[in-house]
Design a protein around this nucleic acid. Structure first.
Lengths: 119, 119
DNA sequence: GAAAGTAGTTTCCTTTTGGGAAGTGATTTC
DNA sequence: GAAATCACTTCCCAAAAGGAAACTACTTTC
């Protein structure tokens, strides 16, 4: 006989939606790296960002910055200099990521140790 | 005249390596979702996991679980039941992710609010 | 013996992500 | 006037991620 499985979920779903939302923003090769750099350095120009985020190309950097901007995490400011320069910095809302980035950094460090000592 | 830009980095690099390590593990559509489910539910069988992680297919689930296992985050246990069943659960090391998952959840919730009220 | 449940693997396909090279247009420097 | 800098964009391609369906192999239930 088939047993009917009636599961209680409910309270999980909205929590998992929140996680999904956050991970959509943070997943990928560059976003967290860029945000971490802006956290360290404050306002940074495009070319300087490219120099600090090792390995990223102009196309990727441009795309990622647009992504972060529409999600209200960074602010783009065009400066009226001789060759125009553009500065990027975290918004107040972007700065609320500091905690999560901090936790990722701490955990990454301990995980690195763990994996190295296993070998 | 060309200006030589000599930059002080140094202490950043190892921190960014740690972030990179962590993000390689957590990036993607499913990993955090799976870990969060195991955090909530404890030991869970394959088919139950598939039911809880909405939308995931058997192939993806299998691949993601293998990934998490080789990184020492989950433990796979084959149970000697009539049709064999397999249980997955977080290792002690996997459980250290709780904090970071918690932060992601909290931030995701507040971000969700922010984005919704903007519209 | 047919059906269904266990835990996957395999094949084939589409979508997404990422990357290099070159181009743009304005301005400044040599 | 040639070269370089800034902040990109466009094009074209490769690799990775993700997914649907079928298949394996074994056991229990009808």
């Amino acid at each position: 006989m088939k047993k009917k499985i009636i599961e209680k979920r409910g309270e999980c779903t909205t929590e998992l939606l929140a996680i999904k939302d956050a991970m959509e923003l943070l997943s990928g090769k560059w976003k967290v790296h860029i945000i971490a750099t802006l956290t360290y350095k404050g306002a940074v120009r495009f070319m300087d960002l490219q120099r600090h985020v090792e390995g990223i190309g102009a196309k990727m950097l441009s795309k990622e910055l647009q992504d972060l901007e529409v999600n209200l995490l960074i602010k783009r400011t065009v400066l009226d200099t001789k060759p125009v320069t553009v500065e990027y910095e975290l918004t107040p809302h972007g700065k609320t990521l500091e905690k999560i980035i901090g936790e990722i950094r701490i955990w990454g460090r301990s995980h690195r140790k763990k994996i190295i000592e296993r070998k």
